[in-house]
């Protein structure tokens, strides 16, 4: 285990010990904080808390034809296939959610997130997130991840995110054949509220150490909130929507793809 990894673990472990502090405050999780209206930015998560026993649903869709390739000829990539994902989250305890997410390349991620600190007396929201991705319908290759979601809300106007995440088994070859089989992603994202229910988002996921092929994935988008719905139109240089696929990077920096996310809160 290398040094930065050890530090990440220590940070995660420490913040878990601090967990009871989170229970001192009890703002109502069902009340929307306008700066953080959704559980994800585009691929990265947020610190939004899912009320206990409530659920949400999300659809991700990335067109596989590059925007810039054939232009209007194939309607900016819409004629090519798409990578789609369906996600379901459930609030198991106050501040703790678990989720299931599957993309149509048959990768499934099971994850849990727990809110450790809330912005108030401290300037930060913080949660710990763990997940395991499994390919071939969770049967073949597994990539566990452990990360922190650190964010700051600027009133009702914007939110900024930093998300260090360690992901294991990012290289799809056996460990005997590779130098690095772990990656540390440093997700960075922002959401800015430009109208009462309209936001622009951006995120980029540099890999700071370990296995880091290809280029870092970046996504930009615009979104509209309508009650419990969120509709996001985005462009990105890759299709990664989970920690290990983000660690494997986007194929190129030259091609940009159109996509959208649709989310629905059932509360």
């Amino acid at each position: 285990m290398n040094r930065s990894l050890a530090r990440l673990f220590t940070a995660a472990a420490l913040s878990l010990c601090l967990a009871p502090a989170a229970f001192a405050q009890d703002d109502d999780d069902t009340v929307l904080k306008p700066a953080e209206p959704d559980f994800t930015i585009a691929s990265l998560g947020t610190n939004m808390r899912l009320p206990q026993n409530k659920m949400t649903f999300r659809l991700t869709h990335r067109f596989e034809g590059p925007l810039n390739d054939n232009g209007i000829g194939d309607l900016f990539g819409l004629d090519a296939g798409a990578q789609m994902g369906l996600e379901f989250r459930y609030g198991v305890i106050t501040g703790g959610q678990v989720g299931f997410y599957r993309t149509n390349d048959k990768t499934i991620e099971l994850f849990g997130q727990y809110s450790l600190l809330r912005q108030g007396s401290l300037p930060l929201d913080l949660s710990a997130r763990v997940g395991v991705e499994g390919t071939n319908n969770f049967q073949d290759s597994y990539s566990p991840s452990v990360g922190l979601v650190i964010s700051h809300r600027f009133g009702d106007a914007a939110a900024l995110y930093v998300e260090p995440t360690w992901v294991n088994n990012t290289n799809t070859l056996p460990k005997e054949l590779v130098d690095d089989n772990d990656s540390i992603n440093l997700g960075i994202g922002a959401r800015i509220r430009i109208r009462p229910t309209v936001y622009v988002i951006g995120e980029v996921t540099p890999r700071v150490s370990g296995f880091k092929p290809n280029s870092n994935q970046a996504t930009f988008g615009i979104e509209k909130r309508a009650g419990g719905h969120m509709f996001q139109l985005n462009i990105s240089n890759g299709f990664a929507t989970m920690p290990a696929s983000l660690a494997r990077g986007a194929f190129t920096t030259d091609n940009w793809y159109l996509g959208f996310n649709l989310a629905r809160k059932f509360y």
Partner: peptide, 15 residues
């Protein structure tokens, strides 16, 4: 909940 999620994350795997 914490125990379950940690157990999840600890399950490091490889081809």
């Amino acid at each position: 909940f914490l125990a379950l999620t940690l157990a999840f994350g600890a399950a490091a795997c490889d081809e």
